[in-house]
Amino acid sequence: MASGSLPAGIKWWSGGKSPYNVNYGKIMMWYFLVSDSFTFGAFLISYGSTRLGSDYWPDPNHVFNSFPFMGHANLPLAFVSLMTFILIFSSVTMVLAVHEGHKMNRKGVEKYMIMTIIGGLAFLSCQAWEWTHLLTGSHSVLVDGKVEHWATTITKNPFGPMVEHAGQLVATPGPQLFGGFFFFITGFHGFHVFSGLIINIIMYIKTRLGHFDQRGHYEMVEKAGLYWHFVDLVWVFVFLAFYLI
């Protein structure tokens, strides 16, 4: 089965049937995801292009080093790794829900859908915390010879190169676009998570109401699953682009 080949001996392309043995809805979902990956791709590549076009770029380990309830402990990447795990785990529960759907096991689908929804909510909460932390933080920055206190916002970045000021090392303003791209791309991803969450909740309700049992298949759950995994897939690349390198 894993080989993914179609049963031989059938002329798959001769019309009157799907050449991929896939329902049109799934084809549309897959090609939509290809399309959407170009949207995300364009954002991430723009970010890369801008980053290579800048003389200085802050080290992400340095910007993302906080953890809730841990005060000022320097824990680079710890929190975002947690977020990654949450998303991967919710992907696993999603695929398990799809799996139960194949077996027409409504209770199983419900169980795993709930877990997926909780995972999505957890991810969004984490993102909310991270955004809040960045937007409300206070970092000393040397601006026009005076030390100011900045948060990381869509237009400001307090993580520029260090200079000596009054005998101390102080940061200068960093590239504005760090915040711009960070908030924009993670926001856009968060928006996808949010919409995926809404879709999942709808799927859950429809499962509860037995719609899919009436229809005889759980393909809608499968399509919602594809979208959810895609959100996970994109996160892997956002994680790469913003946090790791």
Binding site: S5, Y20, S91, F230, V236, F237
Partner: peptide, 23 residues
């Protein structure tokens, strides 16, 4: 990261189970 992407697409999204041309 590419390897991760591969596993998500191939296993979670069942791309490995689709027909070769579709993939």
């Amino acid at each position: 990261t590419l390897a991760k992407g591969y596993y998500i697409a191939w296993v979670f999204m069942h791309m490995g189970d689709e027909s070769k041309l579709f993939r």
